[in-house]
């Protein structure tokens, strides 16, 4: 089978042509990407519920049914295990399904197919069977939603070998990373930060392009402290960085699994301080792994303990206090100030 993954992984980011852009938000970037990829490759089918006439509860698939028909934009029964399981069957037959799980908290019924088929088929066939499929999942809180509509449970996916876990943080990042995810031969969990679906507009190239699936992004360089983050928290980290007495380097991980460990260690080795900033619960959140990695490979470069500005180890709380649960620019600012103030 063709494997052009390596070239896609190494896509040069200067391929983004700033001359031809449109200013759009993140969910529109999702929509544009799906449209362009489906135009490019007839083997791409979308599956999910409410993705047809409704265009998705967040409108990510708006207009695609009319453009591509009901054999390529498939409203399914309300069955996550059925959506992922039938997508696996399609990928087994050489297609590239792009299933949508409406909310991350609805993924749990699909764990059977995820564990038994999605992440294992390539391994258990000794490499004979590839499963190119991109599972789109809106994740995260801050939208005043009902229970199971706000969580950030990427750890379950990251703990599992055989799948890439990708998270976009801006409209332009979304377009390039989603296209690359769809084109790669590996299964991908593609996390979309729904809190900022419509939060920020930015110029996005109108032409199709891909971004590397194996490289973290240095959002801004700095010399005092590294903030490791992704998704909706990237913006918050940028806001906090303007408000602290420190030169902050922000690393947008982009690939939560596998991690771009080289970039992470290089940055922390340079700054000597690190804050991990994520929405997920702290215990065994990705911050735990990042902290352990830095401890193992860069301990003697550290000028302060690593701090984790994260959610608490609780169920995602109700509307009235969700802002107190969610890490925000204040929480990350405190963490930055704490590591800056520490002296061995």
């Amino acid at each position: 089978m063709s494997n052009d993954l390596d070239t896609e992984l190494d896509t040069d980011e200067t391929a983004i042509d700033p001359q031809e852009t449109e200013t759009i938000n993140l969910i529109t970037a999702v929509n544009r990407t799906l449209h362009q990829e489906m135009d490019r490759d007839e083997s791409i089918r979308l599956l999910g519920y409410d993705i047809g006439p409704l265009g998705g509860v967040y409108r990510g698939t708006e207009g695609l049914l009319a453009e591509f028909g009901d054999k390529r934009v498939i409203d399914t029964p309300l069955s996550e295990n059925g959506i992922i399981g039938t997508a696996v069957g399609m990928a087994m037959r050489g297609e590239r399904p792009v299933p949508e799980i409406q909310f991350m908290g609805f993924f749990y019924p699909a764990f059977g197919q995820f564990m038994y088929a999605v992440v294992k088929m390539y391994k258990r066939t000794g490499g004979a069977l590839e499963l190119p499929m991109t599972i789109r999942i809106p994740y995260g809180g801050g939208v005043k939603a009902l229970e199971y509509h706000q969580e950030s449970t990427e750890t379950y996916f990251i703990h599992t070998p055989g799948v890439r876990v990708i998270c976009a943080s801006t409209p332009a990042q979304t377009k390039g990373l989603l296209a690359a995810s769809i084109r790669t031969v590996d299964p991908v969990i593609f996390l979309e930060p729904k809190k900022i679906y419509r939060g920020v507009d930015e110029p996005v190239p109108t032409a199709a392009y891909t971004l590397p699936l194996n490289k973290a992004r240095i959002v801004q360089t700095g010399s005092d402290v590294t903030v490791l983050t992704w998704g909706a928290m990237v913006q918050q980290a940028q806001a906090a960085a303007t408000d602290v007495d420190a030169d902050v380097e922000i690393v947008d991980l982009r690939s939560l699994s596998p991690l771009d460990i080289e970039t992470i260690l290089d940055s922390v080795s340079k700054t000597g301080r690190c804050v991990v900033f994520h929405e997920a619960r702290r215990t065994l959140g990705l911050g735990a792994e990042l902290s352990a990695l830095i401890n193992e490979y860069a301990l003697d470069r550290l000028k302060a303990p690593i701090k984790r500005a994260t959610g608490y180890d609780v169920h995602f709380p109700g509307h009235d206090i969700e802002d107190d649960y969610l890490p925000d620019d204040d929480r990350v600012r405190y963490a930055i100030e704490a590591v800056m103030s520490y002296e061995f």
């Binding site: 399981g85 069957g89 399609m90 087994m92 197919q113 088929a117």
Partner: peptide, 13 residues
């Protein structure tokens, strides 16, 4: 049970 869903997905194609 896993193969039932995969087989049906294959048949959908």
């Amino acid at each position: 049970g896993t193969n039932v869903v995969n087989g049906v997905g294959a048949a959908m194609t």
